[in-house]
Design a protein around this nucleic acid. Sequence first.
DNA 1: GATGCGTGGTC
DNA 2: TGACCAAGCAT
Length: 366
Amino acid sequence: MPDLASVRRLLLDWFASSGRDLPWRRDYAPWSVLVSEVMLQQTQMDRVVPFFDRFLARFPTPAALAAASEEEVLKLWEGLGYYARARNLQAAARAIAHGHGGRVPDDPAALRGLPGVGPYTAAAVASIAFGQDAPLVDANVERVLARVFDVDESLATSAGKRRIAALAAELLPPGRARDFNQALMELGALACSKAPRCGECPLAGLCEARRLDITAERPVRAPRKAISHLDVCTGVLTHAGRIFVQKRPTPGVWAGLWEFPGGRIEPGETPAQAVVREFREETEFAVQVAEPLGLVRHGYTTYSVSLHCFLLTLANGGNQPVLHAADTFRWAGARDLAGLAFPAGHRKLLDRLEAEGRLPRLLAQG
DNA sequence: GATGCGTGGTC
DNA sequence: TGACCAAGCAT
């Protein structure tokens, strides 16, 4: 088994020389650390940084976020995914503003009680913001420790998880948790990645998986479920120079985001038939297809979709919907469309219409 | 313990 | 191209 003291020293030295310069690492302000850690859940660093900069500029304190509208918060989160994080973070900000005197708590139990803060994030904030000796485990830590110490239990099992957690706790140098926890994760992100770059790794000389030439087999993971494919449709319904949008209910997929109605294309149905049916079911609008708008392809973790898009007009009747799949609706103008948060596929469709120069015409008063 | 929740990068 | 995956959490 690799020498623990050597692992600690090599990791801390490497992090001091090779750690990335990140916005929240200048002063480790607790609010910055909390926001960054929530954004980093299941999301890679390079993608987070620009979102973090915009978010902190707008919401420099928990009180600022607490006072904002959910609309504005989701708009700033648009494109980052896992939107429950944004709503939970605002709920956490309100709890901090009203229940903790406006300061992010340093007590792990209090942190854990904030919405959207689980075991990882609580330990990350306690150690990175406040320097407390809290070990943490994320996917990076799992990868690094499973390789360095050749953990052969599957990480899908509780035995494997316990083994990693025990190693992370035993390894943590008291008083150095801020740098050490970040060092482990940074190493997992920069060197000990899925396809490891052992030439850049300070631990290569003592890594068990490398010695045994089994880095590709560590960590042992459960096989993922197969990715399924789905054909769905959506329609941009225009009327009197405006476009119909509806707000998705909470909880659920894309809760609180705006969308164009649509849904799954059933067997034996053409995409055009499906979009007419979906509008009837979701809004009780009778619509007709004015023009196909092509295909938007989009991937998700467990499935991929082909989004068949259409331009629609009202076939008859008034412009008041009866909503069955949404909280509220709006006949949106250009300013609305720019300011509302949409799921990526629908935003992609809007961007395409914009790029083709068609949006102004659709939104012309008529 | 299993599942749902987004998105875009990578190879 | 498509399968895999990322600084997890809630239910």
